[in-house]
Write a protein that binds this DNA or RNA. Structure first.
Lengths: 216, 216
DNA sequence: AATTTTGTTGACCGGTTGGTCAGGTTGTGG
DNA sequence: CCACAACCTGACCAACCGGTCAACAAAATT
């Protein structure tokens, strides 16, 4: 048996497939339940029911409720950080910040449950991911602040406090996920349409970009 | 006994005083515990300990955990609505929206626990205050949107979607309460100083006001 | 085909939680 | 000073929750 065949077998083996699929189903159910009930309000039984598995099976893949929760939070954090790719290779603030806002709005739309879990985690004092905040997030923030400061120094945008600007972007974009229920209620109880999402994105972009002196 | 004497006695009676004071202490403790642990994670025992009362005493004043929670949520909702007073008798958007942002930032600073409870309630689908969203909040929103629209029609500000503008103000201001822990962590673990709160308020105000074409 | 590893699950358990209640204490009106 | 109402609380309970485990099934390995 050569190396390729072995790798192929490992990746395609039924065992591996079962594990991957079950973990996926469990994490998806957990994300939803944690988002809708909070960590304390969520029960392993509820997650199991939503995943269509016996509760004992959950504990086979994830030792404890906290382990499962940690994985859910880490998943959304990864997505969150990736949105920064828009930021990096941008020529100036109009392009960079505009693309970042669009990326974050897209995340709010496609991962509303993950966003809520993250918000909930932070609101409760980040008991699980405090170390991420102090290391990865801090470095990430410092890096983007430096980019914004360079744009300001180059006269490409108004001298707005870069940190506060990032907070404003985070707040406005995540609002559409975290407070989605309120927004839906004020929208006659109906989810936002494609057009409404585009309008919201455009409004956020235009107000912020004009607010930092990039648009006229 | 005349009417005045009776009212005076009722308001000053020790019984009334005891009830009012105990309810106040319990609500204050409950707000903090619900904010830090969520509804599901909060326990009556924890609230009782923080209030310095036996658990059974809590159930004397508030029949169920849900009753207590409902009162906490209603309290913050009242404060929330009152911030709109800044909006109403304003000559134009610079004054009205500026004052509203300041009022909401002040609420985020002075009632961080209440803000978090409100956010948590909405994030979880507003199980307790859904009717408020559909009645009071909707009317409130429609009213302010009309005011903003009049300003736009009068040429006092750029034609920004009034609804999205309100959402942006809610999001940016409440962010400082709901994500206060994250902001504090990124601030070297220290709470914002007076000066930093003023800076944050000014940045939010200037970016939004410039963003809607009110500032140059 | 035998053996080992991995996956599956109903039944069970100790600990915690929201809520109750009986019996006591304190304040109030007559 | 008496009777009634409001307030207080230790002890208790049924329900539920996270987690365990033994016994079994299925797949992989030899």
């Amino acid at each position: 048996m050569n190396e390729n065949a072995r790798i192929s077998r490992i990746q395609k083996g039924k065992r591996t497939e079962i594990r991957r699929e079950n973990e996926r189903v469990i994490l998806e159910a957990a994300e939803k339940v944690f988002a809708e009930a909070g960590f304390g309000g969520a029960t392993m039984q509820l997650i199991a029911d939503m995943a269509g598995l016996p509760k004992a099976n959950l504990h086979y893949y994830f030792a404890t409720k906290e382990d499962l929760y940690r994985r859910v939070v880490q998943n959304i954090f990864e997505i969150w950080l990736h949105a920064a790719d828009s930021f990096d290779n941008a020529a100036g603030p109009a392009e960079g910040i505009g693309a970042y806002i669009e990326a974050k709005m897209e995340i709010s739309r496609r991962h509303p449950f993950g966003s809520k879990v993250w918000a909930s985690e932070v609101m409760h004092g980040a008991p699980v991911i405090q170390d991420y905040l102090e290391t990865t997030l801090r470095e990430w923030t410092d890096g983007r602040m430096a980019v914004i400061q360079r744009w300001i120094d180059a006269g490409l945008m108004a001298p707005v406090n870069p940190r506060q600007l990032l907070y404003m972007i985070w707040a406005t974009t995540q609002h559409y996920a975290d407070f989605g229920h309120q927004i839906e209620t004020l929208n006659a109880g109906k989810p936002l349409t494609d057009r409404q999402w585009r309008d919201a994105t455009e409004t956020v972009k235009s107000v912020i970009l004009r607010g930092i002196g990039v648009l006229v």
